[in-house]
Design a protein around this nucleic acid. Structure first.
Lengths: 345, 345
DNA sequence: TTGTATGCGTTATCAC
DNA sequence: GTGATAACGCATACAA
């Protein structure tokens, strides 16, 4: 130990259970019992301890407790982008589910970087989190499975082969969402429906496209590859894609964008060119971000119940930690009909 | 200890430095030195330790290290709403500043609730975080100052009387922002300029209003209280306020909204009534949220450099932790002229 | 450079 | 119900 007392807070040295015990005239064990509530403590000692704690301004050290217990009562939450409503809404759901459970979330963001993702999980494990929730992770399944041997993991937006290891995937039916969006347009009379894809190569993008194709087929509309152009789930991607579509010379009366952000970008491209929505062109998004209620006009979109997904992820993880079975039932997608779609005239 | 081994991971019992030391044929101290890098270790032992670590799949326990060191190398970040771009952008700045410093952020959200805020900080202290960053906190100064005696705290969106305790406030000049927004409208020829206030009673709201009044005065325009109506920094508040303004019968050609979200709501009210922006009415926001680049049309707004604020907050906190002086220089606000404002015709 | 011994603050085991 | 005491896993003062 240093002789100089390492710059402590004003109150001087840290006060520990030992000092509380001394001041209260009991043993540390009793103080600990009082704190954890695991065993009954007599009324007299209880009061003495309470007084001592108040007088000394004692704050229990969770670090020490966690070390001893072997559990930290924290769960790590990895988000790709703290700046995206899509993720933050899920985090809200996680927080809601954890509230009152005794567990606390430890949120970090990894910026869509799989290497950073693995590194973060390792550091969380080093911190001895009791479980990890990965939102829309990009880490390969084998790597994830290896990590799951050290700590239970629940990942959203993914599916895994087996549920042997404490690893669960929570995946919404994106194909059904794409189908819902496209069918809505078809029902409104549209037949020339373009699609701005999501990030090429991702499951989400592929499944939404598949749903789009299934709806077309169901209505007897031929699939036209020229009406499909790729985006990247971002506003700028949507803007560029919309411009490409407009410049292609193909005619179309509706657009299904792979997500809301893509739709926002597409909307701006249309505004710039004086194309009215929905009079000249119908537009449907995917996600139902909070902002979609206040776009001009409010966006028709497929609602992803991310709050519920977050809640479910946390509940599933808790079950995994307790050693339960954990076979979660996924919520379903729904269509939010607003003002960017109207009957074809 | 339980006789049942408390459900350990597949690899069996946790592997510690002791076992690594045994396997490598050295002492625990040497293993520790290898891990921390505080002292040189001979090449031979170093290799032996590395081999042992790899073979045993050893993961250092940060909890134990933190307990021993008295520092956890984590800093707590309190955000009011993980779901708001305003906060999440600040968090990004914090992460950027912390990156490479050895410290890791521990993010939690407290939903604008001062009681929860205090409780969260206490729990963070229990976890022995080395510092706390509070984003737009609502906790009263005395309470905050008391907590700051236990751990250094940096709070954004606030100012404090003295800098005696390890507590710093980081506040942007909101008055200057309100002035900037209003002057822009005045320069475009507008004279009847309405204002939708922020949350009544908050500093931010009051200062932005003050800036609005100063600009009016500077241009010799009388302040008309009927052109000011209160909002609450949210979309729905902006929508309601805009409707009130429109229904009041007063004439005005421009609106300065207290923040971007308010402007989004106002924009929707205008769309619903067929009022064109900016042809019929100019609109200015405050914050420059990422979404404001993609509204229809893109929103003219006052940019709050929240990323920089987050960075500055983290840097200031780090200095506080090291015991430095820490008198941060705040960045300034700027106007982002986009497409919701035009010259009065 | 390396090893020994001790302690960080708490919880859990055991005997009373 | 209560009190000694031994861990939890790691870092460091000290001696070598």
């Amino acid at each position: 130990m240093n002789t100089t007392p390492k710059r402590k807070r004003s109150s001087g040295a840290t006060v520990t259970t030992v000092q509380v015990a001394e001041a209260a005239g009991v043993s540390v064990a009793t103080v600990s019992r009082f704190l954890t509530g695991v065993t009954r403590v007599s009324e007299a000692k209880r009061e003495a301890i309470e007084a001592a704690i108040a007088q000394l301004d004692f704050k229990p050290n969770l670090l020490a407790a966690s070390l001893k217990r072997g559990r930290s009562m924290t769960i790590g939450v990895l988000t790709q982008d703290v700046n995206s409503p899509f993720f933050t809404e899920t985090v809200l759901g996680v927080e809601a589910a954890l509230d009152g459970s005794g567990y606390e979330p430890l949120i970090t963001s990894v910026h869509w970087n799989p290497k950073e993702e693995a590194e973060r999980i390792r550091r969380l494990i080093a911190r001895r989190v009791d479980g990890v929730i990965v939102l829309s992770g990009r880490l390969a399944e084998p790597a994830l499975r290896r990590l799951a041997q050290q700590v239970p993991i629940v990942a959203t937006g993914r599916q895994f082969k087996t549920s042997a290891s404490p690893l669960r995937g929570l995946r919404l039916d994106n194909e059904a969402g794409g189908y819902l969006a496209t069918r809505h347009l078809l029902e409104l009379g549209h037949r020339q429906i373009a699609h701005i894809e999501g990030w090429p190569g991702t499951c989400d993008a592929a499944e939404r496209l598949a749903g789009y194709r299934r709806a077309l087929q169901e209505f007897g509309v031929d699939f036209d590859p020229h009406l499909v152009t790729s985006g990247n789930f971002s506003e700028s991607g949507g803007l560029l894609a919309m411009n490409r579509l407009l410049d292609s010379g193909r005619s179309f009366t509706a657009v299904f964008a792979a997500n809301d952000q893509t739709a926002y970008g597409a909307r701006l491209a249309l505004y710039r060119r004086g194309v009215r929505v929905p009079e000249d062109l119908a537009l449907v998004g995917f996600d139902d971000l909070p902002a979609s209620l206040y776009t001009t006009p409010p966006l028709t979109t497929v609602r992803q119940p991310m709050f519920e997904v977050g809640k479910l992820a946390a509940q599933t993880l808790l079950q995994l930690i307790e050693g339960g079975p954990a076979q979660p039932q996924m919520p379903t997608l729904s269509l939010m009909v607003r003002e960017t779609t109207s009957r074809l005239r």
